[in-house]
Amino acid sequence: MGSETQYKEHIIEEYTVDKEPYYVPVGDEISLFKAAYEEKMPILFKGPTGCGKTRFIEYMAYHLARPTTGGKKQSKSEKDSRIPLVTVACHEDLTASDLVGRYLLQGDETKWMDGPLTRAVKRGAICYLDEIVEARKDTTVIIHPLSDYRRILPVEKLGTVFEAAESFLLVISYNPGYQSALKDLKHSTRQRFIAMEFDYPPKDLEAEIIAHESGVDSVVAESLATFGEKVRNLKGSGLLEGVSTRLLVYAGRLIARGIPPRRACQVAVVWSITDDAEAQQSIQEVASSLFE
């Protein structure tokens, strides 16, 4: 690393995925997504944490090219034709103005500042609202006009309506598993989206992913995938959630760094997924059966 750039800075709606993300398709999700995108249909991702939802949207953002309008120059670099990806992690204090924008005080006057959603709408980016159910219900309704045929964003404080750019796409995600019934998605919201269900990849595929992402050999990757499968068997009886592929990859990376496998599984999986002492011990026993 050179000393001159420690980090990169992007304007939010200009951020594009420039390096091809590693993603192994499990089913027909790529063609589905493409079709939906062409048809400008908003998409809802469902699935447990760490199974690859975010990776998939990055992958798609990288691969989807902005429909080139005839009049523009063709010499545009590849980067410019990519669709920017605006990601908003939702939380329970997220208000509508956090998404749409607000007036800020600047000098002696107030100045309007666009929120991420408005910017994505204007720029024609993919707007990815992660964990949408975490947001307050009164916040989520503002995406309604955007997510049907109208594709508009009314901004009441400005007295303006923005029509979304061609390439704009709204994608939301949520995990139906662990949130309580209180935090369910409203039907008026969810029925505006096509839903794509994600789950952990099948064992062989997951082993491949782990091997690629962590750099461990195929035997260890295979064992980690088996470990993942066994731990997921406990979902419902001992655990609220199965172990994510992400955690298995972490475990793999630690192993690749020379950490003993049992220890790596302990810190990356066992202690991460549960605080229940008995469940911890059980999972640790599974790890110690699988790894020497």
């Binding site: 068997n233 059980s282 026993e285």
Partner: peptide, 15 residues
């Protein structure tokens, strides 16, 4: 018992 039970459930994938 509970630890062994969870262990068995994990391995067998059944309840």
């Amino acid at each position: 018992q509970h630890i062994i039970e969870l262990y068995s459930q994990a391995l067998s994938g059944s309840d």
